[in-house]
Amino acid sequence: PQECLLLEPGLNEIMANSLDYNERLWAWESWRSEVGKQLRPLYEEYVVLKNEMARANHYEDYGDYWRGDYEVNGVDGYDYSRGQLIEDVEHTFEEIKPLYEHLHAYVRAKLMNAYPSYISPIGCLPAHLLGDMWGRFWTNLYSLTVPFGQKPNIDVTDAMVDQAWDAQRIFKEAEKFFVSVGLPNMTQGFWENSMLTDPGNVQKAVCHPTAWDLGKGDFRILMCTKVTMDDFLTAHHEMGHIQYDMAYAAQPFLLRNGANEGFHEAVGEIMSLSAATPKHLKSIGLLSPDFQEDNETEINFLLKQALTIVGTLPFTYMLEKWRWMVFKGEIPKDQWMKKWWEMKREIVGVVEPVPHDETYCDPASLFHVSNDYSFIRYYTRTLYQFQFQEALCQAAKHEGPLHKCDISNSTEAGQKLFNMLRLGKSEPWTLALENVVGAKNMNVRPLLNYFEPLFTWLKDQNKNSFVGWSTDWSPYADQSIKVRISLKSALGDKAYEWNDNEMYLFRSSVAY
């Protein structure tokens, strides 16, 4: 590609939709070469300064400071330590791993069909083939991996386009969902002041979706909304933040926050679980009234959910574990990228498509890292959202599997949720969690119950496949010279610098 592309739109479109291996590689590498390399010296300084700040406030390091958001002291029976968070994340991840490994094996087999000769049947997945710029969410792999393609499509993007949905309609439908469970409408100022579409040439905007509580009843969302099912669900997520903000607005200023950061992320995700169900999509006209649910549509639905929800958990866990180790000084600065990709291979089963030396800073190419967000919130929120969903479905008197529950129109479920939201940070999160779900610790069981039918199906699908991955295989081993030459021509001086062995191999191949 010759034109100058922004991340959004532009590069993200390539990473969402392109099936051209080399075009995807160009976009993936260009973003890291342009952005990651510029941020490397800044990120090194950032780590030093943030650690100084944390230690001045009596924390061991900046990662310890972040984990302090979960700490509860002096509340008998509800205490929770920063170290306990690490333990809980690690042991819940071990419980999730078998499901993830089977999802990984299934996706690898489907990617082998889409990119023959580029995928190893026992290796890691190349990082640039996973549906977005970071491989964070695998949602866009659904069209390549759908188990029963002859069934009606449960990705309702086409239906939204056919019905001329726009950003306003998407957010109005999200608002209807919250109102149906007894939560309030958005304010008039929300509709007047939010930026729900890309302003285009009028001004440059950071398009990463964010929710804003500017105080004095001024709530806004910034999002360059596209007419897709993914953005339909994202709208519910962002509006969930606003509902939380509005619910605790009466609290004293210092207590106007989520019980912990994971709670804030979980609220909209609960609504997304219901909004994505075929039952709900039928009720708002995005699935045909004669759409029939059966075992095959159930597996299609659960796989689509797993690509988004299960596929991202190792990504989140590994990223934050790397940062915690960096802040603690356990990874020397001259080994940041080496350790990043070692951990990516070992924990996530994902491999870099071309080698990256220590001039890169791949983590900082992600919005949340370069903008100083702690990231473990996206792991804890996933466990909380299924715990909350299970409890709210019980309040809504849902009968049947958890993945079929739609809590819309249940004011009982809405009241149970609101009673927790309005507390803000005035009560320990362990107590707030217990008030809703009857337990005071994160628990992976509801998530595993939700995906149980899919897990059973995946194990059957993978019975003749290798489950797990070898960390030795690299996608650039066989194609390295071709890849390096093409990237050198595209990126010039910003391309990865060849070492002596690679230059010798190149000259030998040319001479041959």
Results as ranks from 00 to 15, higher is better:
Thr139Cys: 04
Met246His: 13
Asp245Glu: 10
Thr187Asn: 12
Ala250Glu: 08
Asp230Gln: 03
Gly215His: 07
Phe367Thr: 07
Asn193Pro: 12
Ser374Val: 06
His368Cys: 03
Phe137His: 07
Asp230Thr: 01
Met246Phe: 11
Asn257Phe: 05
Arg256Glu: 08
Tyr378Trp: 07
Arg220Tyr: 13
His264Phe: 07
Leu214Val: 11
Lys304Tyr: 04
Arg381Asp: 09
Asn140Val: 04
Val206Gln: 08
Ser272Trp: 10
Phe253Ile: 14
Gln251Val: 09
Thr139Lys: 09
Glu265Ala: 06
Gly217Val: 15
His237Arg: 07
Asn153Lys: 08
Phe375Val: 08
Met246Pro: 01
Phe219Pro: 14
Asp213Asn: 06
Thr187Val: 03
His264Met: 08
Asn153Pro: 06
Arg256Leu: 08
Glu269Ile: 08
Phe301Tyr: 11
Phe375Trp: 07
Pro252Leu: 13
Asp218Ile: 15
Asn140Ser: 05
Phe253Asp: 13
Lys216Arg: 14
Leu233His: 06
Asp372Ile: 01
Asn257Lys: 06
Glu192Ile: 07
Lys216Trp: 15
Asn153Gln: 08
Tyr378Cys: 02
Phe301Glu: 04
Val206Asp: 10
Asn193Asp: 14
Pro209Glu: 09
Thr308Leu: 04
Arg256Ala: 01
Glu192Thr: 08
Thr234Leu: 08
Phe137Leu: 09
Asp213Ser: 09
Phe137Asn: 02
Thr308Met: 05
Arg381Phe: 03
Thr139Met: 05
Phe137Thr: 09
Arg136Ala: 05
Arg256Pro: 05
Met229Arg: 08
Asp372Ala: 02
Gln188Arg: 09
Phe137Cys: 07
Thr210Ser: 08
Val206Met: 04
Ser272Asn: 03
Tyr378Arg: 05
Phe219Trp: 12
Ala250Arg: 05
Glu269Val: 06
Asp372Glu: 09
Asp372Thr: 03
Thr187Leu: 13
His241Phe: 03
Lys216Asn: 15
Thr139His: 08
Arg256Ser: 08
Trp212Ala: 13
Asn257Pro: 13
Tyr378Glu: 08
Phe253Leu: 14
Lys304Ser: 04
Gln251Tyr: 13
Ala249Phe: 14
Asn193Trp: 00
Thr234Gln: 06
His264Cys: 08
His208Gly: 10
Asp213Lys: 12
Asp218Thr: 15
Asn257Trp: 07
Asp245Arg: 12
Asp230Pro: 04
Arg377Cys: 02
Thr139Arg: 08
Pro252Lys: 12
His208Met: 05
Thr210Met: 03
Leu214Thr: 14
His241Ile: 09
Pro209Cys: 07
Ala249His: 13
Phe367Gly: 06
Gly189Ala: 15
Arg377Trp: 08
Asn257Glu: 03
Asp213Glu: 09
Asn193Ser: 11
Arg220Cys: 11
Ser272Gln: 05
Tyr378Ile: 02
Phe219Met: 14
Asp230Gly: 05
Gly189Val: 13
Arg220Met: 13
Glu269Leu: 08
Thr308Cys: 03
Gly217Trp: 15
Asp372Pro: 02
Asn140Asp: 04
Asp213Tyr: 11
Asn140Phe: 04
